[in-house]
Every structure is written in C-alpha cells, then in structure tokens.
Design a protein around this nucleic acid. Structure first.
Lengths: 342, 342
DNA sequence: TCGGGTTCTGGGAGCGCTCCCAGACGGTTG
DNA sequence: CAACCGTCTGGGAGCGCTCCCAGAACCCGA
C-alpha cells in the first residue's frame, strides 16, 4: 500500500487502515452509529486523532444531501443596514444559534436586482439546507422568488405580502407600540407624536398602527403627529425637527427605533427642550449598546433578537428533520423598559 | 430510461440525455470548456434551462477540491464589534468582493475559547478554500492556530506577533496619524491630546506611535496627553472626560476612531468647549455614516475598507490559483478629509 | 448440541460531478 | 490515396463518503 504523502489530507480509508478495521466500521465509529464494539470505536477515534483526520464535507454532502450550512439573508438597502444595530444583533445571534445546532451561517446581502438573481441562483444551487430571511420590505421580490425554490425558508418579520403558507417569526410590534404609548398617556402626556419607520415594512406599519390605536382609544387626536423616517440617526433627527416645527407644543414622542431616537434626542436638545420634562421620549428595540447609554437613558420597548433567531432556527430544524410543522406566524412578546427619558 | 420524478433535482446526466449528448459534452458546455461544437453547446444550455438544472456543488467540490466558499473571520469581543461600523463595512465589502470572484462568504465570529476550537475545526474541515482574518488583537490565539492549518490565510490588519511568512493587508495607520496630527500642528495647536485604541491591536499601536512621533518632531511634549479607550462611543466619552480633567488647557485631540470621536464630541460639548474654536478634533476611519454626520462634521483620516478587502481577496485568489505570491505586508495609503471639527 | 436471536463487521454500490483518454470525424497536406 | 493534423465526442475511472446487505461472531435457552 502506497504511503500517503504528508500534505495530503487523510481519508476515512486511511483512518480505517491505521485502526485495522474496515471503512464501514470507521465511519460508524466516527458518526457514533450503533453496533460498533467499544474496542473498534477506541481504535478508530485514536487513529483519527493521530492522523489529524477531518471528514471531507463535500463527499459527505454528496450522499447525505445535507450541507450543514444555512443562509441568512439580509435584504435591506446598504445605508439603512450600515448603522442598524438590530442587524448586527441578528447576525451574531444567527451565528451562535446555528453553531449550536451544528450549522454554519452563510451570510447573504441582497438589495439590488442583480443581488436577487445571484441570491436565487445560489440558494437554488444546493449550497445550503435552508434559509432565514430577515425583515424584507413590502416591495422586496425575494420572498416570492424563494417561494418557488425547493429550499425551506423561515422569515424573521412579516414576509411582504405572503401571508399564508410561510413560516414567520415576528415580534409583537403593535403590542409594543401600545405599551409605549399607553405609558406616555398614563404619565399625563397629551400631545404624543411619533417618528415612524419606513412604511414599506411590516414592523414599521404595525408600530405606527399601535401608536394610532392607543391614541384614539385614549381619546386623543393623532392627526398631524406622524413623521416618517428611514431608521437612521440622521433621519430621526430630521423627522424630529420637522415635528417640532409643525407641532411646537408636543409633549412626547414615540420613536420607532433606538437609532432614530438618538437623532431625535439630539434635535430636541439643540432646540432647548429638556427631556423628559418638556418632551418625553420612548423608543423601540431597547438595544443594549444604545438605549441605556443615551443622555438621558432611553425608555424603550424591549425585544430580543436572539429569541427571534432561536425560534426561527428551531422551526427550520423541524422542517429539515421532516417533522413538517404547519406554516404559521409566531408572535414573540415584547416588554417596556422604563428609563429616564420618559 | 426511468423518468425522474418532479421534485428530484435534475442531474448533469439528465441534461445530457435531454440534449441528446453525453455527460462529458454536457459538462464541457456548461463549464465552457474548449472543444464543444456550437450546436452541442446550444442544445445543452437549452436543456439546462428547460430542466431548471443547477449543478450539485458537493459533487463538484469532491472532484475539483474547491468549495467556492471563503471564510471571513472577525475575532473581536462582542461589545466592541456591535457598534463598530468598520466591521460592518468589512462584512459588506467582503460579501461583494467575494461574490465578484464567484465565491461565497462564510462569516465566522470568534471571540471565546470555545469559538476558537470550533473555528479551527471548521476551517480544518475543508468547508472553505481560504480564510480572511480581520484585525486580530495581539493576544488572539487564532493566527497561531491558523498557522498550522492547510488553508490559505490572508490577514486584514497586523497579525498579532506573526510578522513574517503571512499575507497581510494593512492601512498606513502610522502615516494616517501623522497626517492628522501634522494638520493640527500646522493649525497652530500646541496641546494635542489623543484618545488611543486598545493597545493590544496593531492599528491602535501604530496610530498612537504616529501621534507621538509627530508631536516630538514638532518639538511638543506628549507626556500625560494619552488616554486609552476601547473603540466604543461610551469609551471615547469617558476618555475625553478624563483628559479634560487632567489637561484642562488642551486645544486639540486626535481620536483613534470615529466612534470614539462621537463620544468625545459629546463630552466636549457638555463641558462647554466649542469645536473647533476651543478644541479641534480629528479622528480616524472617516466612516461615511458617522464622520460627515456629526455636529460639527469630523475631520477624519480616510481609509477605505473596501480597498483593503479587495486587496485581500486578490492575494487570496493568487494563492488559490497557485501563483504563489510571496508573503508580504501590503500597506494601503490613507488620506485626510478635512471638515469643520478642526 | 443445536437453532435463533442479537451484535458486529466488511464489501459493494452509488451519490453527481470532472478529468483523462481513446477514438471518430473532417480537412489539409505530401 | 495515405498520413497527419486539429476538432469534437463518449465512456470509464474515481473523488471520499454513507448506506445497504450478506455474513461472521457471539450469546442464550431448549
């Protein structure tokens, strides 16, 4: 038998030979299958260790039809994504949660039309076993395109106009907004404005709806109190400026994200309004590196991206393992973290 | 011949049969190899389109010994990473640049010790063709571990204590710092403090060195004018506070990152110092969503993460294609973008 | 002692692809 | 017309693994 040269990776066959057993037995030992004697198992594991063996994934995938990789798709315009801490949290959580179930994360950014074709082709290509898609906006063609694929998909956040037949894990955006605004109402505020997120996105729409309904329920008039921004700091600052301009007597504002709230805070303080005395501020996300760090620290609706990702991974794994969970919309609860800004 | 059921993915053999040619010819046509008649090529491409064929990557990798995937390793503590726009820029650039050379990005976060083993095992496992490692800190055991691997690695930023035999693409951190400080000196500032980054990282060390040397060259005394922080906003704010405390008469500060500069700005303005009249501020990174957006807009040392990633990918591709480029340290130039803060 | 189960093992087939090689074909040359 | 070239094609081997199956080894009670 020819000696395998140093730089060649040892194969299962090599390990088997070294351990003095057959390839089959070696495979069983390594994948701890049933019916392997303790003795053989020992020998195989020792051989694998000695030779520095690690299985060839391609060969394994070829027969198991599983790659052990999951795609995480972020389909948002670059600018928005760049300073969105929610995305970062999602990426990290995705990495961890997937690693915990033995999967690798393949990150995919998909904004432009060329991205779409590329993304679809890639997902088509059998590189991954499943896909997690985060917060697509309404106009996003991706969800529809994915519909036609043979790859299992789970959405994080409302999946555009696909309402049935898909797996979705979402936060209780409307409930969270209600919580926030109710808190302001209870504190006696009566001119409660809002800086909403882009209205082509499920989460933004729901948060705005929660704000509006709560005001109406409290007998307050929401007219003229809405400004839409794009989830960025600068956008939040601008929106706050135009609100102040239009509604100088506002005494509270519900901002649909922490990042926009940072911008709003800046505008408010340069306008000489004191927080929370003149204007109370409540935001959404309760990002650990943002909300508590502001001056004053922000009251914010708390959501845990990690929880969301975990639920998504769990659902995906159920699909992959053939347990065929019924497609449904899971709504995760949120809570209100009260700090000095309100 | 048995008809293949609907949900089964068509194989190359199916395409060949459909096109009325052999598997070999089909393969050649699809990979546009030489020696395929125009006629055959047509037929094969049409067949592939009609059947919705996409090649099985596992099978291909098995024989080509190429996976078409590149790992991007970010090895930094979570907190630091979360709001570091440089990382985000790197991720996006990595995604784009790799896509352009037909590779997929597999993102890997590696902070903890368990991460290290997991990461090494993964990279060992032949899942990826090469690795891009970003700004490891000095104590990071990862670069050493990677040394032993059979996978080509390119570092972005100084690779800990490995100085030779590795591929590195770095920015001219020292030169950038010199540019920044020289700019302050030329403007007549004489008490120029600095907020340095963590000194276990090459970039931070070099930036600090550039600051120090420029001061000395200008006949100024750097003593007591250094404060170290951790690249976060809050860290920058704290560092600025303690500098003001210690050196109340400082008239300029060179901050080693935009994010820290944002914190410093905040401290300065709440201390009632006007910028740039009382204190001039120059930072490093010139992040598009940060530096120009501040009040006042920040003068910052401009570096282009995309350029860095591009160079890294290029080097990696050269290695993968067997062109054996000599391991070396590429230094990318930086420039100074002057805005109102100085 | 023998059957009948359980435990364990090794060989063969095959996943879908690429690469190598032998040979067919057509066109040019001596 | 043979010899030769470049162009094109199909079949076979093989990448490294898992899975199936036949059979060996062993243990137990009848």
């Amino acid at each position: 038998m020819a000696a395998r040269s140093e730089d060649e990776r040892p194969t299962l066959e090599d390990v088997a030979a070294f351990a003095g057993v057959s390839r089959s037995t070696a495979s069983r030992a390594l994948n701890d299958d049933t019916y392997v004697s303790a003795r053989s198992r020992e020998k195989v594991l020792a051989a694998a260790r000695d030779l520095g063996y690690s299985p060839n994934q391609a060969a394994r995938s070829l027969v198991t039809r599983r790659t052990g990789a999951i795609a995480v798709v972020l389909s948002e315009p670059e600018a928005r994504l760049l300073d969105d801490p929610y995305r970062t949290a999602v990426m990290r959580a995705g990495y961890r949660e997937l690693a915990d179930v033995g999967c690798q994360m393949v990150l995919i950014f998909s904004d432009t039309r060329e991205d779409l074709t590329r993304t679809v082709r890639f997902l088509e290509g059998g590189h991954v076993d499943g896909v997690l898609v985060f917060a697509p906006h309404r106009a996003d063609p991706l969800p529809r395109a994915l519909r036609l694929l043979r790859v299992p998909v789970v959405f994080g956040g409302q999946a555009a106009d696909l309402r049935r037949g898909v797996h979705v894990v979402d936060f209780d955006n409307e409930g969270g907004a209600r919580l926030a605004v109710q808190h302001l109402v209870s504190a006696g505020r009566s001119r409660i404005a809002t800086i909403a997120g882009p209205q082509d996105q499920g989460a933004s729409i729901d948060r705005l709806a929660g704000w509006r309904k709560t005001l109406v329920d409290a007998g307050l008039d929401p007219a003229d109190l809405v400004e839409e921004a794009d989830f960025t700091l600068a956008g939040g600052a601008r929106a706050m400026a135009s609100l102040l301009d239009r509604v100088p007597d506002l005494d509270a504002v519900f901002v649909a994200s922490d990042m926009m709230a940072v911008g709003a805070l800046r505008t408010l303080s340069s306008a000489g309004r004191s927080i929370p005395d003149d204007v109370a501020v409540v935001s959404f996300d309760d990002n650990a590196t943002l909300a508590p760090e502001m001056t004053p620290p922000l009251t914010s609706v708390h959501q845990d991206p990690r929880e969301q990702v975990r639920a998504m991974v769990e659902t995906l794994m159920n699909v992959l393992d053939g347990r065929e969970p019924p497609p449904r919309r899971q709504i995760l609860p949120v809570s209100l973290t009260v700090r000095e800004s309100s």
